[in-house]
Amino acid sequence: MKMKLLVIAALGAFATACASTPPVQEAAPIARPPAQPTAQPHEPTGPVAGSIADFVQNAGDRVFYGYDRHDLTPEARETLRRQAAWLASYSGTRILVAGNCDERGTREYNLALGARRANAARDYLVSQGVDPSRISTVSYGKERPACRDSGEACWAVNRNATTTITGGYTN
């Protein structure tokens, strides 16, 4: 019983820290839940190589942008280099890069801004050797937020380009 309470407290503290930290680094996205603490000794098994989970965990599936910006930060470039390396290892895969925006802008403006974000990520992946024919892009503007709450911490998470493996992956 005491153990359970401790776990809840720890989770609460993590969520608070996350909400107050702008996700300028790819380590921060709150869309990924923290690993569940468990009392049993357990040998961790990583995701299957070449799987979607492998890509998300070992390359990182999203990069973040500043307010009203579509230029890549050094952290974003680092993530995209890891994505390009992963895509080089699994050359049969195809990806969709989706540009997303925070909700503090009008709908069509955000669709255009999201396209810029997706294109910036796409262009960098191509510069890192990814064949452009493997990449599709789309802008969802503000319509598919990763975080639904109001406030800058949430909006910062939603200013991203998210890479999804759409084909050729290992199950």
């Binding site: 909700e103 709908r107 937020p145 639904r148 709450d149 109001s150």
Partner: peptide, 11 residues
């Protein structure tokens, strides 16, 4: 026009 009101759980 579309009018949005801020709520803690989104607009």
């Amino acid at each position: 026009f579309t009018r949005g009101e801020g709520r803690s759980n989104g607009t």
